[in-house]
């Protein structure tokens, strides 16, 4: 058979592609459970971290997460942290390149942000991707929420230490990502005020959740 002929080439490419894709599917099947478990632990860890509950390692995360009252469908969680009732809400909103997913935690009176954690994003590494960095996320801890939500604006580029001004220092060179974060957080604050969400939160409160 002519190795350079069209028929041989087509058959060869088909067989090679089939064989490699088949092997890949097998590997994917073999690892998918572990990958999903890892993602679940990351999600649980993010909820705990946003709520200000310290947990290290997958076992401690799963153990402490068990003490948080959650409604996975609504993406809501409720826990009492250091005697204070804290709501956690999972958000997903448009960033510059793709969806930014994360968790926002806030006190039960919706007046003060407890913390924020990013689960996944596709922002530019080194620019918008810096929303993952502690200096950016730590600015949200204890930040007061104004009547019209929070404001993410470029200030000095190294974080805004004032917790009372509802102002978060944005990321230099990533204005669009900073704006997206502002929009996402404010939309989430709005969502928490809706009657429907408040009802779910009340019922979660009654389930307890003492971390």
């Amino acid at each position: 058979m002519n190795k350079e002929g069209t028929i041989y080439t087509i058959v060869f490419v088909f067989i090679v592609s089939f064989a490699f894709v088949f092997l890949l599917s097998l590997t994917n099947q073999a690892t998918i459970e572990q990958v999903e478990l890892n993602q679940e632990i990351v999600r649980q860890g993010a909820i705990l971290s946003a709520m200000g509950i310290a947990a290290e390692g997958s076992e401690e995360i799963q153990e402490k997460y068990g003490m948080v009252a959650t409604d996975p469908d609504a993406g809501l969680s409720v826990a009492t942290v250091d005697g204070q009732l804290v709501y956690g809400t999972q958000f997903a909103g448009p960033g510059l390149w793709g969806t930014i997913e994360g968790v926002l935690a806030i006190t039960a009176d919706l007046r003060e942000i407890v913390g924020i954690e990013i689960v996944s994003d596709n922002e530019t590494p080194g620019l918008g991707g810096r929303i993952n960095e502690p200096w950016f996320k730590d600015q949200f801890r204890g930040e007061r929420v104004a009547a019209d939500g929070i404001d993410v604006t470029q200030i000095a580029g190294d974080g805004d230490p004032d917790r009372a001004n509802s102002l978060i220092d944005g990321i230099t060179g990533a204005t669009r990502t900073s704006d997206s974060m502002e929009a996402i957080v404010n939309r989430e604050l709005q969502r928490l005020q809706s009657v429907e969400i408040q009802q779910i939160l009340r019922s979660l409160e009654s389930q307890g959740g003492d971390a």
Binding site: K3, Y8, V13, V16, F20, L24
Partner: peptide, 25 residues
Amino acid sequence: FIPRKVRMIVQTLIIAFYVIIVDLV
């Protein structure tokens, strides 16, 4: 067994195969 004209495509396929395995692991 690789026909010359699809040589590089097949090489890319092989490389991609191993990279995805590394990624999954």
